[in-house]
Design a protein around this nucleic acid. Structure first.
Length: 420
DNA sequence: TCTGGGGTCCTAGGACCC
DNA sequence: TCTGGGGTCCTAGGACCC
């Protein structure tokens, strides 16, 4: 059996852990730059705050409805996630951390007499008790069905108490006849449209299609999904492996035309990728650089420029990455446009140790100890105090975060103080 | 003025190999 | 007239996820 465990309204719940006065009150969490709503508590959902709502359009409503609004606090969410996942690992060795707030657990070889249902409730209680984060659990013979079960557990919270199990054919059919096709894991906008045109409304209708049709029109991905929904396990736990791509991309606070400004941003994104690469002991062979104009602005010409720079050698040195990033930018930058967003994605990742030595062109060997020194120093004296000369020294990761909560669990200066 | 960021997998087609 | 058969690797683009 597979369990899909997911944290309820995760970011909003994290904010609530250290603010018990907010229990029962509406909470909304904003994206980077305080752009739009990316998480809501149940209360905020009931007040009609939609997912993705642009913050500047909803400011009045936030005030009127007394919604507690927060900037995203990834230091807090990341740490809370680690705590939850760490606890889940104590219940089974077979676990796949699927996202910051979700994990699949696999239960294999349990005795028929073993009460998995009671075990699920035990997990739920222990996690909530130890972290303060409420969770929901779906348990079923396949991953896709566990996802369905999880949806049901949340939709009918009063009845399920946050745990739903699909362990009989009857329950499977009931679930599939209930769940709308667009709510099924793996059915996005494109496939939903096609299926609905064919009159398919529920997951159950989808499972009635032939394997041949599904394979032909939805590739093996669709077919695996269909089998999984039929209760024939076709998706297994994915091993946790190092990332294959690493990206740093940001929207700017305003639109910018100036090459020097964009260059500084791109270089900073490249060094951020370098840091993430070194952290997982990888080098990269190539880098995609892109810039784009503001798609929401009317009357201005839209432009999207992107290019892939391949390197003669793999590297994770900020200095070299910055150089390649600038080369890429020069290829795509066009005067006269106002840019709103840019990004750097490093690709072709290889392990740091066994990089191939090239006869003529190699990463500067001196950079390795230099980068280590920089990383260590930054760790000691504060995040990204030490920078490349091509970065702006005054700029401290310019992001609007006007309603940021304290980093309660990762900064000693920001832990809760108790007054006696 | 203000609209997020970071990933994965699959397929088709081209280039190239023996 | 008739023009093999089987691979690999890479890239771009699509679809999807949280």
């Amino acid at each position: 059996m597979f369990a899909l465990i997911d944290c309820n309204n995760f970011y909003a719940s994290c904010e609530r852990v250290f603010r018990p006065d907010l229990v029962g009150k509406p909470i909304a969490v904003l994206s980077n730059n305080d752009g739009c709503v990316i998480a809501r508590s149940d209360e905020a959902k009931e007040l009609g705050i939609p997912m993705g709502a642009p913050a500047f359009k909803y400011d009045k409503e936030f005030k009127q409805k007394k919604i507690n609004v927060f900037s995203s606090n990834y230091a807090l969410y990341g740490d809370m996630s680690k705590r939850v996942m760490g606890l889940l690992e104590t219940f089974t060795p077979d676990i796949e951390v699927y996202s910051i707030d979700e994990a699949f657990l696999k239960f294999e070889g349990y005795d028929a007499n073993f009460d998995l249902k009671a075990y699920m409730f035990q997990i739920k209680e222990e996690v909530t008790q130890a972290t303060g984060i409420p969770i929901s659990i779906g348990l079923a013979p396949t991953k896709a069905l566990a996802k369905v079960a999880n949806t049901i557990s949340k939709k009918f919270k009063a009845k399920t108490k946050g745990v739903h199990i699909i362990d009989t054919e009857e329950k499977r059919l009931k679930a599939l006849k209930w769940i709308p096709i667009e709510k099924v894991w793996g059915i996005g906008r494109g496939r939903q449209k096609r299926l609905q045109e064919m009159g398919i409304k529920k997951a159950f209708d989808f499972t009635n299609l032939s394997d041949e049709w599904t394979r032909k029109n939805m590739s093996v991905v669709g077919l695996r999904l269909k089998r999984d929904l039929e209760g024939k396990p076709s998706l297994d736990l994915d091993a946790v492996i190092d990332k294959k791509n690493i990206a740093t991309t940001r929207s700017f606070d305003y639109d910018y035309k100036d090459y020097e400004y964009i260059k500084e941003r791109i270089v900073t994104f490249a060094t951020s990728c370098g840091y993430k690469l070194r952290k997982q002991h990888s080098c990269c062979h190539a880098m995609l650089v892109y810039i784009k104009t503001n798609r929401h602005k009317k009357g201005e010409l839209p432009y999207y420029g992107s290019t892939v720079v391949t390197f003669p050698y793999p590297t994770n040195s900020d200095i070299e990455l910055a150089k390649f990033a600038e080369q890429g930018l020069q290829q795509i930058f066009k005067e006269g446009y106002s840019y709103k967003k840019a990004g750097v994605i490093v690709m072709g990742l290889t392990p740091e140790e066994n990089t191939q030595i090239n006869l003529f062109d190699n990463s500067d060997a001196r950079h390795k100890p230099l980068m280590k020194t920089i990383d260590d120093l930054n760790k000691k004296i504060g995040n990204t105090k030490l920078k490349l000369a091509s970065q702006d020294l005054k700029r401290t990761w310019k992001m609007r975060q006007e309603r940021l909560s304290p980093r309660y669990t990762t900064q000693i200066g920001e832990v809760l103080t108790i007054k006696v």
